[in-house]
């Protein structure tokens, strides 16, 4: 047991540290708030984690490549509003809408990727501009929550497989797929190489631009999927639903030890980061901390986290 811990510590101390923090948070929550220990609350917590978790996977891959995606929040709002706004409780429309929404996510990612990879726009500017365009579009479409989803579609986020939320199982499957993609495929290797040093990656014969576009497409797809998830969870899409998701997904990725400079880290850490963020949200809500104070706390968390991992020049 001791040697195992030593091996993990030597192999990836950051990752080990992050999971220790997660454990400490969990124990703290379980011992201070009795409501925390209920089955209802835990499955609620897992569902909340899945929302951040899906978009967090995409954000991790973008950040690993040395980029950033600030458009995920608006894209989530757009996806959720289109889902419920077009479906309006009609079961025959479920599959076409899922394809449409995911297609829009891919298209947005494709545009982001083209701007960054081929037109040399800095990633945070390209995706910030995209975010404004998407938020404007969704507010043109609707200013208040719109439409509704079918009961069957709500199973996606609220269904149970025995004692375990279906959404959690879905997330685990997604995680295994992307872990495999990052660690065992050419694209994954290229993402790490580009994030490590773009010039060396290019000289090694990696098609940097193609890989970058792919990365933003994945992120757009995952954000659209999160929009579907949130529409399913609440039964209705809200034009401001995704607000804050860009910052919280980035925070989760950074807590997980992935470097903003790119090339270092991975989804293993993001899982812990997502759970930590979901735990913090959950504890703050259980303790009755007002939403305004939560903003301050989250802002401080963001700053502490970026300050904690010092980037080398």
């Amino acid at each position: 047991m001791v040697t195992l811990i030593q091996r993990i510590l030597r192999g990836n101390p950051t990752l080990f540290f992050v999971y220790v923090i997660l454990f400490v948070f969990f124990v703290f929550a379980a011992s201070t708030a009795p409501q925390f220990r209920t089955v209802y609350n835990i499955s609620n917590l897992l569902r909340q984690a899945v929302a951040f978790g899906i978009v967090g996977i995409g954000q991790t891959i973008v950040i690993l490549s040395g980029g950033i995606d600030l458009s995920v929040g608006s894209l989530i709002s757009l996806a959720a509003c289109l889902t419920s706004g077009i479906m309006i409780g009609n079961p025959t429309l479920v599959f076409p809408i899922v394809f449409l929404v995911l297609g829009i996510g891919v298209l947005v990612g494709l545009t982001n990727g083209t701007l960054v990879a081929y037109l040399r726009v800095p990633p945070f500017i390209a995706t910030l501009a995209m975010s404004a365009i998407l938020q404007g579009s969704v507010l043109l479409y609707t200013k208040k929550p719109v439409g509704g989803v079918t009961r069957g579609f709500m199973f996606f986020a609220n269904g149970q497989l025995g004692a375990i939320p279906f959404a959690f199982v879905f997330w685990v499957i997604l995680l295994s797929f992307f872990l495999f993609l990052l660690r065992r495929t050419g694209l994954g290797l290229h993402v790490y190489a580009i994030g490590g040093n773009q010039e060396i990656a290019r000289l090694s014969g990696i098609r940097v631009s193609v890989a970058k576009v792919a990365v933003y497409v994945i992120s757009g797809f995952m954000a659209a999927l999160t929009g579907l998830f949130l529409a399913s969870r609440l039964g209705i899409g809200d034009p401001l639903m995704g607000q804050g998701f860009e910052l919280e997904s980035i925070t989760a990725v950074l807590i997980g030890g992935t470097s903003l400079a790119g090339g270092k880290g991975g989804i293993e850490g993001t899982i812990a980061g997502v759970l930590i963020i979901a735990l913090i949200n959950n504890i703050l809500n259980l303790l009755g901390v007002s939403g305004f104070w939560q903003w301050i706390i989250k802002g401080i968390v963001v700053i502490v986290v970026v300050a904690a991992y010092k980037v080398k020049e």
Partner: peptide, 12 residues
């Protein structure tokens, strides 16, 4: 990212 964090703090 730092300035986004600051924005959130002052919003709060």
């Amino acid at each position: 990212i730092v300035t986004l964090g600051t924005a959130l703090i002052f919003q709060g």
